[in-house]
């Protein structure tokens, strides 16, 4: 029961979108996936085509309260940032062991840096979603400085909402690619279908099966899948799918 932590340095980069579709992608590959939001105000249900009024059950809630979408178990733990027993609890629930039988994807808001660091220590992978905009690029030294070599060893980067028709976007993406190298496991192209799917309360795969963002994020899930069986502390994507 391995854990994948989704946490980016800046809000609005699409961290929740990536967490949701990572869960869907791993589920499609046969994993039994639970995705948990630790945000006080979370938008995770929207990416599963659920109503904004949906309240996700706590990770400790009984099975009969579960919210299941396509076999994926959606949970929440809003007090995770202050709860020092959260990590031990996940350990007791068996989420720190390799294997595809059960997988935990944790969606951590950008502001909860300390919680993210605590979780990444026990994760098989940390997926850091960024965009190619300069205000996000400017945060990268701080991200690397806080994570240190050990934290970065588990980190894979994803560029989200990439607009290749814009010069600055192309340059920013090229910069990230050279900086992150093989740790950049993919990019997700800007796609208006993503917010449109949310607005229609549908899952992206149903609203726009030909969505380029959907195709891109599926590739990222495929790149992440080998980490589920990893027993080492240092994980690197087998093949760079970056644009």
């Amino acid at each position: 029961m391995p854990m994948i932590v989704c946490h980016g340095p800046k809000g609005g980069t699409g961290n929740t979108f990536v967490a949701a579709h990572l869960a869907m992608g791993l589920s499609a590959q046969g994993a039994d996936v639970t995705v948990v939001s630790v945000a006080a105000r979370d938008s995770l249900p929207l990416h599963f085509g659920l109503s904004p009024a949906t309240s996700l059950p706590a990770i400790t809630a009984p099975a009969d309260e579960a919210v299941l979408v396509g076999g994926i178990n959606l949970r929440s733990w809003r007090r995770a940032a202050e709860d020092l027993d959260f990590v031990p609890m996940l350990n007791e629930l068996g989420y720190f062991q390799p294997g595809k039988e059960r997988v935990l994807v944790v969606d951590v808001p950008s502001g909860d840096t300390r919680l993210a660091r605590r979780l990444i220590e026990h994760a098989c992978a940390h997926v850091c979603t960024i965009n190619a905009q300069p205000d996000t690029l400017a945060l990268l030294p701080q991200v690397f400085g806080e994570a240190g070599p050990e934290g970065l060893a588990r980190t894979a980067f994803v560029i989200n909402a990439l607009d290749e028709t814009r010069r600055l976007g192309r340059h920013g993406a090229a910069f990230i690619r050279e900086l992150a190298g093989q740790r950049l496991i993919g990019r997700i192209r800007m796609d208006e279908a993503v917010p449109e799917a949310i607005a229609t309360l549908q899952m992206l795969g149903r609203y726009a099966p030909a969505s380029v963002a959907l195709a891109d994020v599926k590739q990222i899930a495929e790149a992440i899948a080998p980490t589920l069986d990893s027993t080492t502390n240092s994980w690197v994507a087998p093949v760079s799918l970056a644009a």
């Binding site: 030294p141 690397f144 240190g148 060893a153 992150a180 190298g181 740790r183 690197v236």
Partner: peptide
């Protein structure tokens, strides 16, 4: 950004990772 020494952390992790 290229001048920031904190970005060199990636060098250390790359050295520990298998070449790809």
């Amino acid at each position: 950004l290229l001048r920031d020494p904190r970005l060199q952390t990636l060098d250390q992790t790359a050295a520990e990772a298998p070449p790809v």
